[in-house]
């Protein structure tokens, strides 16, 4: 469904008058996802996870440059092709309720998303109704304004908005942030259902435990780079995990050893080598001067000199 190879995202900023400064936020990002699959993308905040979703949709700010190869349904995803796919075949479930316009009725916003996804004016009302009932939203919710929704309801409205069309690839950006456990479980359940109907779901999150409940595969980001691709089953024990960063994340979970004193990892512009080197226990000279390749390792992939 989607195959991303060596994606990089850079931002150009002007500092002190006309001095240009380029910041590379994502580099060497690889990811692929098949129909019917939930692919979890995990990493610390600031690892470039949300940027990935925005880059895939081509909605990054104007000062961002995206490079790399992206294939959607086997064909290269060019900006021209993207502008016809956005909302029709690729849909976003955004992070927070602020993605809904506070001054427009919920129903109007969902209906507009339906129209944009290619549903005719005649069919739009029934499609919206169906989307509402699928997510257990009462009919009158359509006449409400976003500020009248509860957290869980808002999440369901956002999901309904993204899935009202027939998009095959769903990008879910932090779908559980700020939700209580029961609501979070419900939101994740909806994503699993979507994957079970044959859609590909990209689940972007920092919550590993939640992600593992529904994911088939997991891609681990560290400082904007893919460091490991593993199946969800590999996370059952420490032994199956290939990259030291993934093991550190796993260790930080409350259910495991709960060791979590890792500093946020930032990519400094001039460093070469492995993005994780400064925090890694297995680090040696080679990690400092060359960036490891993303190697195949059993069913997954890993980017480490020592794996």
């Amino acid at each position: 469904m989607l195959d991303i190879q060596d994606l990089s995202i850079r931002f150009t900023r002007y500092t002190f008058g006309l001095k240009k400064k380029e910041t590379c936020v994502v580099q060497g990002l690889d990811l692929s996802i098949a129909p019917g699959q939930v692919m979890a993308v995990i990493g610390q905040s600031g690892a470039g996870k949300s940027l990935l979703a925005h880059a895939l949709l081509g909605i990054l700010p104007r000062n961002a440059q995206v490079e790399g190869r992206v294939f959607f349904k086997g064909k290269p995803l060019t900006p021209e092709r993207l502008s016809t796919l956005r909302g029709r075949e690729i849909a976003l479930i955004p992070q927070s309720i602020t993605a809904l316009n506070p001054l427009l009725r919920v129903g109007v916003q969902v209906a507009r998303a339906a129209r944009l996804s290619g549903i005719s004016k005649k069919d739009a009302p029934t499609t919206v109704n169906r989307a509402f009932s699928r997510y257990l939203l009462q009919k009158e919710v359509a006449t409400w304004f976003p500020f009248q929704l509860s957290g869980g309801m808002a999440r369901r409205v956002l999901t309904a908005t993204a899935t009202v069309g027939m998009a095959d690839l769903i990008l879910a950006d932090e779908p559980t942030s700020g939700l209580d456990p029961a609501t979070a479980k419900e939101a994740l359940g909806h994503l699993r259902e979507l994957a079970d109907t044959g859609k590909a779901v990209l689940l972007i999150t920092h919550d590993i435990e939640a992600a593992l409940k529904i994911a088939d595969m997991v891609t681990v980001f560290c400082a904007g780079t893919t460091v490991e691709v593993a199946s969800a089953d590999d996370f059952k024990g420490l032994g199956q995990l290939r990259h030291p960063y993934t093991r550190a994340l796993w260790n930080a979970l409350p259910a495991n050893s709960f060791i979590g004193t890792m500093k946020p990892i930032e990519r400094s512009p001039n460093t070469t080598g492995c993005p994780f080197q400064t925090c890694c226990n297995e680090q040696d000279a080679v990690c400092g001067h060359s960036t490891p390749e993303l190697k195949h390792s059993s069913a997954g992939r890993v980017r480490c000199h020592h794996a």
């Binding site: 925005h54 949709l57 909605i59 502008s83 956005r86 909302g87 029709r88 849909a91 976003l92 955004p94 927070s96 602020t98 993605a99 809904l100 316009n101 506070p102 427009l104 507009r112 998303a113 944009l116 996804s117 908005t161």
Partner: peptide
């Protein structure tokens, strides 16, 4: 945020300005 979401749904700038 709501405009970025609208753009993700395929809305054009004109569409965002006049419809959203």
């Amino acid at each position: 945020d709501y405009s970025i979401f609208a753009r993700a749904q395929g809305e054009s700038t004109i569409g965002i300005v006049f419809r959203r």
